[in-house]
Design a protein around this nucleic acid. Structure first.
Length: 876
RNA sequence: GGCCCCUUAGCUCAGCGGUAGAGCGGCUGCUUUACACGCAGCAUGUCGGCGGUUCGAUCCCGUCAGGGGCCACCA
């Protein structure tokens, strides 16, 4: 071997080359071996025109970790990638671009516009895919899907038609959330409520034929133009006599009825009188139906007032109309005051426009029959949501679910497979009908609305596998195993996939849902362009390497929000460099590669080698367990700690005397090299899912049998490698070394000063400390280790890991500070001893506590007693 | 109003019944032949307050106080 590595790890130099090697080697594509168990996962499809942001980086890093882990663990693994057509988002983006050129989508017409968006998709659709590749994502790109692909579109049509025929899709006039900017209906979950400062206006409505007036309050005065009634509580003594009379609506001077409505009106709230605008308010709509009030639409699709609002207001934007109405009311003396008011306002998150409730004919999914079984599978554990605390949120939402508005008045999306004939008969069909089955009319036109993007995403786990055909992929890989996504789309996506999956495949689409948190900045603030605290994953990949970015995301990923800091990524790029240099050191000494290295004769190993293998074994066990439980943080932490602080800090240092020929036989050296190679190999494989690039690069230089580390077997813990004896003794050695270093620094000696160490050890331990004294002399920089001999007067005494030791220093004045420090330590030990004495003196403790705990307390007491005695000698 | 989460070292967080931990930052040494993106050492905590359960509580239960999230309501 003896191959030289560069002194520093340069990620940019290898990442692209290795990714290309993987892709060309077809390592991401599962084989057709039906003997091996399968593992499958589908990507949460990013928007096709999107750009990779840090949230994508997180969710895809976690998926890739799981996928690489499973693949190496022997599963026939499929990670199925794809993109989403993202109806509104994409349409808005393309429209914005057209607007810059002074073109509106209406200039192009529907077909022309659609063609334009497809052009966009061709130009920018691969961008996010390329960016995922830079992250190291090992998805099977040969199976790349897009929600508007023909196959997926057919699944969409099939589901729509089936649900329609089952009576679960209906078309109806109803109050919906209308976005005047996008000019489409949107579903309830798409409405975001934000607190806004506003004013609450009181308006006097004179009662017709009386000198009384009713005062109503509103934050939306312009809607009064569409009022068709006022309501009071039927039992309200103040007003009940007025029910059945009319008020005269100011400005428009229309007479509208006073009705009694116990549901709409809370007599204790405000004036106890409510203006009723059935066409522009959800509650008023219901109240209007109950009381036979007219529905008068005064706001048009585009958010401007229409002719029904009156000539004075027609054509004005609703907010401009609001101002004018207030002015007019003041002028008429009908404004009875106003006050500042904070309330939540429905906003369309995609375009930041205030939602206008509107009556409109839309398509809906009757959701309750779909929700029930979807609740059951989570309740009975068929699907597990992790962290589990999200389950109550899921239940809460599913149990109060409303019908799903699925039609969108957009051009970009799956056009609803419904048709109307000249006689307005509705034909719902997967294929285009040539004539109406009811009236034989051949004058057929298709519904112009498209479906909510989430309608197609809801089918993603099976539509991507070729469903409704029973394709080999569908049979092999559906249902999938795990879903990893953000909690923010639990309702939008996860819940709907569960409902649709159960309904159409009869199976839960996955068994585990891991919901990751939000990536925030280092102080827990949301990342936003305006705050300027956004971390661009591509920037940090350039700066620190993909492995460091991935590792940082993983080590924070426990399901909570992630406070991401550049300093952490810098820290883990240092870790990558550490790995690189450990490998560099190893390769300077190791002279066999993995292919030709024989097996290890464990029985003949020296204790240092037994120890590191035992530590690695425990790490392996921790990592596998943690990954099974989606504890990415615990898994990555365990490897980090092992590699840096056990393997590098201790094992490599302890192996140097042997490797450099300062100690031991040629055979010892050969074994040390073999174990060094073993630990490096296993560590790299263990680490590969987290840091795929650097591990591949080094592992290939070590000459692995498999063509790539990504298809080498993932380490599993083996009981034979557990070695408590080695752990006990090496723990004592490292503790002694730390104590010597510590005391050396405390007493103000230089690192080059050498001392003698006296250790009292008996039986097998005496043999050990005699054979392995070099570990102490080399690492603690000692002259000699002297066993079971009375140390000279003035030596420093201590008890470490059960062994009494003394350090013989050259004569040097002990300072006051040092004495005080010793006193503090004695006090601390006394305090702990006091606690132990109290415990052991307590019959309840001795009788009730587990024997191991009592035993531990006894031995700790013995050690503390001995230690206090030694420390007191140090203090003179 | 309903549900959920958080409060532990200067910062960001692990730990969740048996002697308080990590990373970053700070301080002191060290050009030790893998790595100064390094090595060694040091410091700092009434584990938010108050009760309770327990032989024992940072950990379990109750309660109060701060902070955050989701849903519903908001004339």
């Amino acid at each position: 071997m003896k191959e030289e590595l560069d002194k520093r790890y340069e990620p940019a130099a290898i990442e692209q080359r290795l990714y290309q090697f993987w892709e060309e080697g077809e390592f991401f594509t599962p084989d057709a071996d039906p003997e091996r168990p399968k593992f499958s996962i589908v990507i949460p499809p990013p928007n096709v025109t999107g750009r990779l942001h840090i949230g994508h980086a997180l969710v895809n890093t976690l998926q890739d970790i799981v996928v690489r882990w499973k693949r190496m663990s022997g599963f026939n693994t499929l990670w199925l990638p794809g993109t989403d057509h993202a109806g509104i988002a994409t349409q808005l983006m393309v429209e914005r671009d057209l607007n810059k050129q002074g073109i509106s989508r209406h200039d192009l017409g529907r077909e022309g516009f659609e063609a334009k968006v497809w052009e966009w998709k061709e130009s920018y659709g691969h961008q996010i895919i390329d960016q995922l590749k830079r992250l190291g994502a090992s998805a099977d790109w040969t199976r790349l899907r897009f929600t508007l692909d023909e196959g997926l579109s057919r699944a969409v049509r099939h589901v729509f038609v089936t649900l329609y025929n089952d009576g679960l899709i209906y078309r109806s006039l109803a109050m919906v959330n209308w976005c005047p900017h996008c000019r489409t209906a949107i579903s309830d979950v798409e409405v975001e409520f934000h607190e806004r400062n506003s004013r609450l206006y009181n308006i006097d409505y004179p009662v017709a034929g009386s000198d009384r007036k009713l005062t109503v309050a509103t934050t939306r005065p312009e809607t009064m133009l569409g009022d068709t009634g006022v309501a009071v509580h039927p039992d309200d003594e103040r007003y009940k006599d007025l029910i059945g009379l009319e008020v005269i609506l100011p400005i428009v001077n229309r007479r509208i009825p006073i009705v009694g409505d116990a549901i709409l009106v809370d007599p204790a709230f405000g004036t106890g009188v409510v203006k009723v605008t059935p066409a522009h308010d959800r509650n008023d709509y219901e109240a209007g139906l109950r009381n036979n009030l007219a529905q008068l639409q005064v706001i048009a699709d585009d958010g401007r007032m229409n002719a029904a609002a009156g000539a004075e207001y027609e054509g004005l934007d609703r907010f401009e109309a609001r101002k004018r109405v207030i002015e007019k009311l003041e002028e008429l003396g009908a404004l009875a005051g106003s006050k500042e008011y904070t309330h939540s306002v429905g906003i369309h998150g995609k375009c930041d426009t205030v939602i206008e409730p509107m009556i409109s004919r839309q398509w809906f999914v009757k959701i309750e029959p779909l929700a029930k079984p979807a609740i059951d599978v989570v309740r009975d554990g068929t699907i597990q949501i992790i962290p589990q605390t999200w389950e109550s949120t899921y239940f809460n939402w599913m149990e109060n679910i409303h019908d799903w508005t699925i039609s969108r008045q957009l051009w970009w999306g799956h056009r609803i497979p419904a048709f109307y004939c000249a006689n307005e008969h509705v034909i719902v069909s997967e294929t285009d009908p040539s004539s109406c089955p009811e009236c034989a009319s051949t004058d057929i036109r298709q519904e112009t609305d498209v479906l909510d993007t989430w309608f197609s995403s809801a089918l993603w786990p099976f539509s991507t596998m070729g469903w409704p055909e029973e394709t080999p992929d569908y049979k092999t890989f559906y249902p999938t195993d795990t879903l990893i996504t953000g909690f923010d789309i639990l309702f939008f996506w996860v819940a709907r996939m569960i409902m649709m999956g159960l309904r159409f495949t009869g199976k839960a689409p996955f068994s585990y849902v891991f919901l990751n948190g939000l990536v925030r900045d280092e102080h827990g603030q949301k990342m936003s362009k305006t705050k300027g605290n956004v971390i661009d994953p591509l920037d940090v990949i350039d700066e620190f390497g993909a492995d460091a970015v991935r590792f940082t995301l993983a080590i924070f990923a426990s399901g909570r929000d992630i406070p991401l800091a550049r300093s952490r990524m810098q820290g883990y790029s240092a870790f990558a460099n550490k790995i690189w240099n450990a490998a560099r050191f190893a390769m300077m000494h190791i002279d066999v590669d993995l292919k030709s290295a024989g097996s290890i004769d464990r029985d003949s190993l020296r204790i240092v080698e037994r120890w590191i293998l035992s530590r690695l074994n425990e790490t392996t066990s921790t990592v596998n367990k943690a990954l099974s439980a989606f504890r990415f943080d615990e898994a990555s932490n365990a490897i980090y700690h092992f590699f840096w602080h056990e393997f590098c800090d201790w094992y490599i240092e302890m192996s140097k005397p042997v490797l450099l020929g300062k100690h031991g036989t040629e055979d010892d050296k050969r074994k040390a090299k073999r174990v060094m190679l073993e630990v490096l190999d296993r560590s790299l494989r263990l680490l590969h899912p987290f840091m795929p690039f650097i591990t591949e690069e080094i592992w290939q230089k070590l000459g692995g049998v498999e063509p790539s580390i990504m298809v080498a077997p993932y380490p599993i813990a083996e009981e034979v490698l557990e070695d408590s004896e080695a752990e006990r003794i090496i723990n004592a050695v490292t503790s002694m070394i730390s104590t010597v270093r510590n005391v050396r620094a405390e007493r103000g000696f230089a690192p080059k000063d050498r001392f003698k160490l006296y250790v009292s050890a008996h039986g097998r331990d005496e043999k050990f400390f005699s054979d392995y004294a070099y570990l102490l002399t080399e690492l603690a920089r000692l002259d000699a280790v002297i066993l079971n001999t009375e140390p000279p007067a003035g030596a420093h005494h201590d008890v470490v890991a059960g062994f009494t030791i003394s350090i013989e220093f050259p004569p040097k004045e002990i300072t006051k500070e040092q004495l005080e420090k010793t006193q503090r330590e004695i006090e601390k030990a006394h305090k702990e001893l006091g606690v132990l004495d109290a415990q052991l003196g307590n019959e309840q403790f001795v009788n009730n506590a587990p024997p191991a705990v009592v035993e531990q307390a006894r031995s700790r007491k013995a050690e503390l007693t001995a230690r206090i005695e030694k420390l007191q000698r140090n203090a003179g």
